[in-house]
Amino acid sequence: MRKTVFWWVERGLLLLISTIVLFPIAWMFLTAFKRPRDAYSLSLDFSPTLSNFVTVFSDPWNLGDMVLNSVIVASVTVLIAVPCAALAAYSFSRFRVRGRKFLFFLILSTQFIPAVVIVLPFFLMFRSLGLLDTRLALIVVNLAIVTPFVIWMIKGFIDAIPTDSEEAAMIDGASRLRVIKDIVLPMAAPGILTSSIFCFILTWNEFLFALILTRRDAVTLPVGLVSFRTERGDLWELMSAAGVMITVPIFIMALLIQKHFTRGMTAGAVK
C-alpha cells in the first residue's frame, strides 16, 4: 500500500485523539500504584506498590462496603429491569395495540427529563418513606432511569427477528408464552445480554442520585470517590486506586459486549 499524505494525517489524528482520551485513564492507572510522594510527578520512574489498594479497603475508607453496595444495586436493577423490559419490548414489537406508538414515545420521553429536575422530588419522597440512604431507594431510582432505555434497546433486537418462526411455533402448538420461551428468547439472547450489560454499566456509573440519596450506609463507588477529597487535600493515589476498582469491571464487560455484539449480528434468522 502506498503511504500517502492522507495516510499519515489519518494515523496522526487517530494517535492524537487516542492520547487525549486515554491520557487520564493511563494517569489514573499509574497513580493507583504510586506512593503518595510520587503521586504528583508525571515520571514513569517509580517503584509500584499495592499499598493504596490495601489502604482504601481498610478503615476509615472501607471501599469494600461501597463495592458491595454498587454490586448489589447494579445487579438487582439488572435482574428486575431486563426481564420486565424484555416482555415490554416484545409486546411493543409484536402486538398491534391502539395507541402503541404514543405509549412507546411516552416511555422514551422519560429519558429526556434532566436528572437534576427530579432528584429533589425523589429526595423528599424517600425521606418521607424513610428510605434515604438505603440500597432499595437506589434500586428504585435506577430502575426508573434504566428500564425505558432497556425496553428501547431490546425492542430493536426483537424487531430484527422475523415473525415467521414464531408463527410456525404457534401452528405447531405453542402458546404465546411458550413461543417467547422456546423461540424468541433464544433468538434474542445476544441482544438481551448486550442490553443487560449496558444496563449494568449505566447503574454502576450512576452518580447524581446516589450522591443525593445516600450518606453513609448505601454509598456506591462513584460517590465514594468524592470522600477522598479531604481537609488534608485531595488524596490522588487513593482516588486512583478506587477509580481502578470502578473501571476494571466495566472494561471487562465492554469487552464481553463487543464479542456478543458481533455474534448477535451474525446469528440472524433464516429465510
Binding site: 418462526s165 405447531d172 446469528a267
Partner: peptide
C-alpha cells in the same frame, strides 16, 4: 388461537427455528 386448531403448515418462507438443529426443528411439534 392457531395452537388450538390442530393444523400443520408448511410456510412459503419455511419459518424454521434457526437456533435448533434439523432434528429439533422436526421434533418440535
Amino acid at each position: 388461537p392457531p395452537k388450538d386448531r390442530d393444523i400443520a403448515m408448511v410456510f412459503q418462507n419455511y419459518g424454521l427455528y434457526p437456533h435448533m438443529t434439523v432434528a429439533e426443528n422436526i421434533g418440535y411439534p
